[in-house]
């Protein structure tokens, strides 16, 4: 069951990214371009996504474990540390430059052509760079 649900939520996530316009880098840059020709529509994407998820967190609080029997995530950690802030800053820069974040980049691999594969391969290199840096410290 867990694998089937993973497949279904991956597919629904991908379709949602496509429908919402998140896989369109020009639209994402328009949303971040507050000093230029600002396009506020992506605020509706985050707003729309938060509604079902806020309900899900409330439901989850009353459940002893998930439907599949796997443990539910514990309370959210509250510590604000340097990796969180520096990592989010680096991510934001990349997001603004290419108009792509990880979900939409992956969702575009099948149809986005060479540019998406260049971005995806670089993203994977970034993942390994982080693993290497972590291994050293």
């Amino acid at each position: 069951m867990r694998l089937l649900i993973a497949l279904l939520s991956g597919a629904l996530f991908g379709a949602g990214l496509l429908v919402s316009g998140m896989t369109n880098p020009a639209k994402v840059q328009g949303w971040l371009d507050i000093f230029g020709n600002w396009d506020p529509t992506l605020a509706f994407v985050l707003g729309g996504a938060i509604i079902p998820m806020a309900i899900a967190w409330r439901v989850a609080r009353r459940m002893p474990c998930s439907v599949s029997g796997a443990a539910l995530p514990g309370p959210a950690p509250r510590h604000i540390d340097r990796p969180l802030v520096i990592g989010s800053a680096l991510f934001g820069l990349g997001w603004g430059i290419a108009g792509l974040c990880p979900g939409p980049a992956l969702a575009s691999l099948g149809f986005g052509g060479a540019s998406i594969w260049i971005f995806g391969a670089s993203m994977l290199a970034g993942v390994f760079l982080n693993a290497a840096l972590k291994g050293k410290s």
Partner: peptide, 27 residues
């Protein structure tokens, strides 16, 4: 479209949380 796509994204995250017990984070 943004709102509809957003609801689908949130629905996918809700499904992954409630059935699989996982946080749906792409990265």
């Amino acid at each position: 479209r943004g709102l509809l796509g957003g609801l689908m994204i949130g629905g996918a995250a809700a499904l992954y949380l409630l059935v699989n017990g996982r946080i749906m984070g792409a990265s």
